[in-house]
Computed example of a mutant assay.
Amino acid sequence: MSISNFSFYNPTKLIVKHDAAPEIADYIANDGIKSVLLVYGQGSVKRIGVYDKVVAALKSKNIVIHELSGVRANPEIHTVIKGIDICRQNNIQAVLPLGGGSTFDSSKAIAVGACFDHEIRSEQIWECYENKRIATKALPIYGVLTISATGSEMNNGGVLKEEVDVRLGSSLPQSVHC
């Protein structure tokens, strides 16, 4: 077996420090971003105080915030579609996940789907996971990681779960890594 030659470019800037969450607004504002979709899970970011700090920092920079909450472990397609629709309807310029790997996985799919041409439906994001559609552009993603477990903040892939209609003979979800 031989290794194919390739080049991989991963433009990820990582800042590790205690209580750095509010600084994310500086990076977003410095890049000229005026609106973000804040993506988070079931509420742990609120319980630990990260949500309040980030929202206050974004507001201090006059960045418009739209929210998508409720991202669950092994994120689901219907949540991603909702996020894509929010971005498209509000001309959102960037996606900001707060939390762990599932919020980052969801945000990657949302960032791609938000840039689909208008004639392409949000639901067609699943085609990227089936290798039927190639992602050619995406909104920028900024992130505040609260738990590092999946490595999603450092890679270009993600896991997304599609619920299969039980009328079609299966109630098992399909998870696909993109």
Rank of each mutant, 00 (worst) to 15 (best):
I65K: 02
G100D: 06
P97S: 08
K53V: 00
S60E: 12
K137T: 15
L37W: 05
K137L: 09
K137E: 14
Q174T: 13
V95W: 03
Q174V: 14
V71L: 01
H118E: 12
I77D: 10
D19V: 12
V55P: 06
I110D: 09
N10A: 10
I15D: 12
V64T: 15
P11F: 08
G49I: 06
L68S: 01
F104E: 02
G151N: 01
Q174P: 05
Y51N: 04
V164L: 07
G32F: 03
A114W: 10
M1Y: 14
S106G: 08
D26S: 13
R121V: 09
I147Y: 04
A56D: 13
I33H: 02
F116I: 06
V39T: 08
M1G: 15
I24E: 05
S122M: 00
G43W: 09
V166A: 14
T79E: 10
S44F: 09
M154Q: 14
V166R: 15
P173R: 05
C128Y: 04
D117P: 10
N155I: 03
G43R: 04
K53I: 00
F116K: 06
T146R: 00
K59W: 08
A29T: 05
G43Q: 04
I125E: 08
S44W: 07
R133M: 15
V39N: 05
Y27F: 14
F8H: 01
G143R: 01
P11G: 09
D19G: 12
